[in-house]
Design a protein around this nucleic acid. Structure first.
Length: 277
DNA sequence: GTAGAACGCCAGGCCATTTG
DNA sequence: CAAATGGCCTGGCGTTCTAC
């Protein structure tokens, strides 16, 4: 099995601010703006009115984001984000160079995506949201998807089932357009978002900038084995007593780790999902 | 000819610095 | 505080060079 650490949601260029962690510890990864998309912030919050949060957090900017700005809802992990058709399951679409990276690493059915993004605590003051002064910017896991099927839409002729038709990569014409479907059967599936904040979900080393990560010790690149993709340079890594520290790369969306080379990864991911999913 | 190596360029992220 | 700017980094990919 392979693990794929996947950077998704608001970042410094798309969205331009952190996704919020609320005062009760719950959080939501904000979908990135995309003009040509079919849905807006107002359409994808479901029980969580993310459009209000987005407007509050960006209103001081020159070009604030608005509730009816269109968004690319991907990965689509929360059933409650939208009214769903029967049979719905979490989906994740990828294309272009990032999809090639996944192909090159042989990502296949049975592998698991762990999605992370840029998060920061927010608080509610005078009826509006704002980032909590002094709260750190962190990279944090917010959801997962175990691959049950891969729709290689760019080369295989197949009909997208009705329940998946709203996904932004469905009936779209991206190069190497591919959709990953959550594993499962019937109404159960293995994918979703984590329910609330836990230190276990945080990648960023406390007190450091968000790209400096603190990982389990076994993450450290083993001699003769493939390192976490994009992170083969050992100078990026350092070992301390209990963990491996990593200067994560600025570039890249998907970082692949081969469970054959790092057997601890399988249990680690299972536990992360079991305890936070 | 053809496969593979070498090269240069680019995209797309984060971040330090500067500016307001 | 936030916004703008430029630097840095690494895999993808097209082009050219090299070996057979």
């Amino acid at each position: 099995m392979k693990l794929i650490l996947s950077r998704k949601g608001f970042d410094s260029s798309f969205g331009g601010c952190a996704s919020p962690i609320f005062e009760d510890g719950s959080f939501v990864s904000l979908p990135i703006p995309e003009k040509s998309a079919r849905m807006s912030f107002s359409d994808v919050g479901g029980n969580r009115r993310i459009e209000a949060v987005v407007e509050d957090l960006t209103e001081a900017r020159k070009k604030p984001l608005k509730a009816n700005d269109h968004v690319h809802l991907d990965p689509d992990l929360r059933i409650e984000s939208r009214p769903r058709k029967p049979g719905w399951r979490p989906l994740f679409g990828q294309a272009d160079a990032a999809q090639r990276h996944l192909d090159n690493h042989g990502v296949e059915v049975g592998d698991t995506f762990l999605f992370f993004g840029w998060f920061r605590r927010v608080e509610n003051r005078d009826g509006g949201f704002r980032f909590k002064p002094g709260a750190p910017d962190i990279h944090m896991f917010f959801g997962w998807l175990e691959i049950g099927a891969i729709w290689r839409l760019w080369k295989d002729r197949l009909r997208i089932p009705n329940w998946a038709s709203e996904h932004p990569h469905a009936n779209a014409d991206y190069p190497r357009n591919t959709i990953y479907v959550a594993a499962g059967s019937g109404t159960t599936y293995n994918g979703g978002t984590f329910h609330s904040y836990s230190d276990q979900l945080v990648l960023t080393e406390p007190g450091k900038s968000r790209s400096r990560w603190q990982l389990p010790k076994w993450f450290y690149p083993a001699v003769g084995k493939a390192a976490l993709s994009y992170h083969g340079n050992v100078a990026r890594w350092s070992l301390s007593e209990n963990c491996a520290d990593l200067q994560s790369v600025a570039r890249g969306q998907e970082f692949v780790l081969d469970g054959n080379d790092y057997p601890e990864a399988v249990e680690w991911a299972k536990r992360l999902i079991a305890e936070n999913g």
